[in-house]
Design a protein around this nucleic acid. Structure first.
Lengths: 341, 341
DNA sequence: GTGAAAGCGCTAACAG
DNA sequence: CTGTTAGCGCTTTCAC
């Protein structure tokens, strides 16, 4: 009969009910061994019965800590890259897993590139204990400025010379190299590169592409490189245009699986077959890559591991420890789109 | 030269600097018209120069409000449905947009079904001003119990008889009906249904499927209904099994686009062509649906609109207004997978 | 138009 | 092992 439906206001009420002081309640609920097991259990039971909800706002205030991490995606209004980008979303899932495991919550926020200069005045920024960027866009300066503010921060992306922040990412150069070399080994010679080299990650992938070509003694034909956007729909129309213009090539390295999927569709409209007419390699190895027609050969980014490493590096910073950059192992997953079998 | 690098601790410091009281600073920064424009601008400038960061934790505490909304995804460890489910993720993007537009941040949290009974004791729950569920799983009881706690809450899913909470969703029955009728009109007669009817949404879609069949005077063959999970990879093996067992059918209504994609892949392994041998209709109309091979005919769930309506209903509750259920307009998007052209 | 002061609910130092 | 007390930084009522 002790079960009242209305929930209690605060610890004070619970303390009165238990005939102890608020401090005792606070300590008991926190599991402090200072409090006798008996009292602790009694209070826990009482809290349960009366449906006591600890006031998290007061707690955050007192502790100067929210146990929340902001994950930010930069959105380029013009390029139309959007939060539904699947790589981003899979990474988000991975981060949510890793953060939850460490007792943190995930504050999801997206910000237009134009607003980057003022991100440090956003609520999302002020309310969280740390911040994670998925992709660095072309915002190196702003990211550096943010890092200088001293807030714990990790960026998923390319390791750059002049970064003030901690980076975790794939070996993009190697990925581009492996993809290209794979196609070269299969006898392809006019290999296109689809990816916007104004951004650090595609740029590094393109470097790897070039290295593979040079290693084989082949020239770099700039007409084969195209700044296709990450976004699937835009990529699709872009590649349609390329076909329209009569670009001739027998293979393509795509800077994301979504671009590869968009390419397959565009090729289809022109009766061009993958991999027979054009062999394709993607990048990311999103869940979908295995189920496209044909399934994608692709450079795997280990998203699960990536999420965990990012979180580990961030927590290190929160605990005042230094955090070094990490480049994850990179491998090629061979499926049918490259025509290997 | 007034630019000091270290950021200020609190309003008090800023107040001293401006030779005013904290109250004045507080009001000025909040844009109160009580303060003279001159003082307001002076303080704003000072805050900017000295890189003053308002303490959001203190503010939340004082205001008893965080401007944060929890979005929760229920994860069934056994079924393996995961946060990377694309419909969920597109919905997340839509919610993030809608919430940002209203000055709210999004706290992303996922919870194992087993933990539903204690979700009200989670930090995510206590820290936020409202809560959104994407999909109701089979947790009707727990959702009702939560709603009874009085916290603003909206659920994306099926409208159920005995719900204590506000629902926003697609007209699932109609969707299932339209999909099935479309296939029937194209002359298909043995139409399978892929979707787990233990869950409210697929269940309603299945009802629509049955209605279309009955309307046509066709019998409901239970052997054609299969509880294929939402998750793409699991769906794939499940449908493989079905083919192995020699299930005969000439069309299928899938309870999600991901299931349809998994089906196409499975059919391919058996040399079965879509739509020639088996016509397919999906559900959701995720971004990908237009780019699969063949592109998917599918029942569109208007995710963008859905996200906005959810947020509107939630904010209504936060403001103490009542919020009624909403069933969104539902339509069939015809592409090639159903063999209409 | 501005200031003084109270108080939100919690945690932790200090005292016993 | 438990209680008393101070105070986190902000907003807002009340006074001037």
């Amino acid at each position: 009969m002790s079960n009242d439906t209305k929930t209690m206001k605060n610890m004070d009420e619970l303390a009165k009910l238990a005939n102890v002081s608020v401090s005792t309640v606070s300590r008991a609920l926190a599991g402090s061994t200072l409090i006798s097991t008996k009292t602790r259990e009694r209070i826990a039971k009482l809290a349960e019965e009366h449906n006591f909800q600890l006031n998290e706002k007061a707690r955050n205030f007192r502790l100067k800590k929210t146990n929340m991490i902001a994950v930010v995606m930069m959105v380029d209004i013009k390029s139309g890259q959007h939060i539904s980008d699947m790589f981003f979303l899979q990474m988000l899932g991975s981060l949510a897993d890793a953060l939850t495991a460490q007792g943190y919550d995930l504050l999801l926020t997206h910000i237009a590139i134009e607003d980057m200069p003022t991100i440090d005045r956003s609520r999302a920024f002020r309310q969280t204990d740390g911040i994670i960027f998925i992709g660095q866009g072309n915002q190196q300066e702003h990211l550096n400025r943010l890092a200088d503010l001293g807030k714990p921060m990790v960026v998923w992306g390319a390791e750059l010379e002049n970064s003030h922040y901690c980076t975790v990412g794939t070996n993009n150069e190697l990925g581009g190299y492996l993809a290209t070399k794979h196609l070269l080994n299969l006898g392809r010679e006019r290999i296109a590169f689809f990816g916007d080299i104004n951004f650090p990650e595609p740029q590094q992938r393109y470097s790897g592409y070039c290295r593979a070509l040079q290693e084989k003694g082949l020239p770099i034909d700039k007409s084969l490189q195209h700044n296709v956007p990450f976004d699937m729909t835009h990529a699709n129309t872009e590649i349609h245009d390329l076909m329209q213009q009569g670009l001739k090539f027998d293979a393509a390295v795509c800077s994301s699986d979504l671009i590869a999927i968009a390419a397959i569709d565009a090729f289809n409209s022109y009766g061009v077959k993958v991999p027979d007419d054009i062999a394709l390699v993607g990048f990311d190895d999103i869940a979908l890559a295995a189920l496209t027609q044909p399934p994608l050969t692709t450079v795997k980014q280990n998203i699960t591991q990536g999420g965990h490493v990012i979180v580990r590096k961030l927590l290190a910073q929160i605990n005042g420890d230094p955090a070094s950059d990490t480049i994850l192992k990179t491998e090629l997953v061979v499926r049918r789109s490259s025509g290997a079998w």
